[in-house]
Design a protein around this nucleic acid. Structure first.
Length: 358
DNA sequence: AAGCCGTGGCT
DNA sequence: TAGCCAAGGCT
């Protein structure tokens, strides 16, 4: 390396102090009970952009339901989605099951232990590949996530914009130099644990930090200014009328979303895009779109749901229909007590309160 | 390469 | 409150 960032850096001392701290302070997490590559894999997918506390109950239920690659491979995709309900980024569930099916079909049910085969699996990117190789197979491979970039941006005073994809490669190079060859599994987890518990985005606990003496940002008092990250652009708002359509049997109309894009393959109550349709043509639009003859009753409430890249402004209405049959296969009449069998996005789960009240 | 893809918690 | 943030990957 022509780069001088690691010149005079005490790599061995850093490793020792970090690993010592980790062994004393690591959290007792469900995916740290053993080194089952499948369980490590599931945990890493769930943990993508998701907090540990959120993941724990999902992980426990998921492993209970799908203990090995074989149960997951054989499962109905709708059941997998139901197990993922509320966790978000639902393509993770679909990709995970597809990849597990490939592992069963092509690798005898053994999660690959090499870069090439792991990288070919759906949903397994550079981070997850490194996490599986290091944590499950104890190979000295970097696993660069947001924690790793934050921790090393401070320790090594790296001022590249971590919002840029290419910046991750810079950290990959440094971690490759710094990673413990003896215990790469603990090293990678230790950096992430440090990022989660001490070297936090706001108000980092530098006074408690086990590797404070190695940190250039702390030495210069600039830990709060790192890492550098450009802001995301503001979300656009989309307005919808949501219709809770009930027939004379007390059944409600639900609809399966497209298998692509936002909330793919989840179920919802019919949504009318008001910006395009206009308030005056809601009933007409429903008839044209679904062949459903409805009468709109009272407004039940409103809901704002914020996604990463857009906002839903939802006005919820009660409606009636005399029909009891539906032609379209992605439309269903479902009794109140059976709604819970289908995977719904959180916004539509919240609407069920207006049904429970009746 | 930048936009798409969820949700909940914290400030 | 509105924005930021979390063990990212896909297209």
């Amino acid at each position: 390396m022509t780069d001088k960032t690691l010149q005079n850096f005490n790599t061995l001392g850093f490793q020792q102090d970090l690993l010592h701290w980790y062994h004393l302070n690591k959290r007792d997490l469900p995916w740290r009970q053993d080194q089952d590559p499948y369980k490590i894999w599931v945990s890493e997918i769930m943990l993508q952009q998701t907090k540990v506390d959120t993941v724990i109950p999902y992980f426990l239920r998921f492993i209970d339901k799908f203990p090995t690659v074989y149960e997951l491979a054989a499962a109905d995709p709708q059941d997998v989605l139901k197990a993922w309900e509320g966790l978000g980024y639902y393509s993770r569930a679909r990709n995970l099951q597809n990849a597990v099916r490939e592992v069963v079909a092509d690798y005898g049910g053994e999660v690959p232990d090499n870069t090439r085969e792991l990288a070919s699996l759906k949903g397994v990117g550079p981070y997850t590949k490194g996490a599986i190789l290091s944590i499950a197979y104890n190979k000295p491979e970097p696993a660069v996530d947001g924690n790793v970039m934050r921790v090393f941006s401070r320790i090594l005073k790296i001022e590249e914009d971590i919002a840029q994809q290419r910046t991750k490669k810079i950290f990959d190079v440094y971690v490759r130099e710094l990673i413990s060859e003896e215990d790469p599994a603990s090293f990678n987890q230790a950096v992430m644990e440090l990022g989660a518990l001490v070297c936090t985005p706001k108000s980092p606990g530098c006074l408690l930090c086990p590797v404070q003496e190695y940190c250039q940002a702390f030495a210069e008092g600039i830990e709060e200014t790192l890492p550098i990250k450009t802001k995301a652009k503001k979300q656009k708002t989309h307005a919808y009328a949501v219709l809770l359509i009930k027939n004379d049997l007390g059944e409600y109309v639900i609809e399966k979303r497209s298998d692509k894009g936002l909330l793919a393959n989840l179920w919802q109550f019919p949504m009318v895009p008001i910006d395009e349709v206009g308030w005056d043509h809601v009933g007409n639009w429903i008839y044209n779109e679904y062949g459903l003859d409805i009468k709109i009753k009272e407004k039940k409430g409103k809901l704002k749901h914020v996604f990463t890249h857009l906002i839903w402004q939802l006005d919820i209405f009660e409606a009636k229909t005399p029909q009891q049959e539906l032609g379209d296969g992605r439309l269903l009449f479902v009794g109140k007590d059976n709604l819970k069998k289908y995977p719904f996005p959180v916004s539509h789960q919240k609407m069920m309160q207006y049904i429970e009240e009746e």
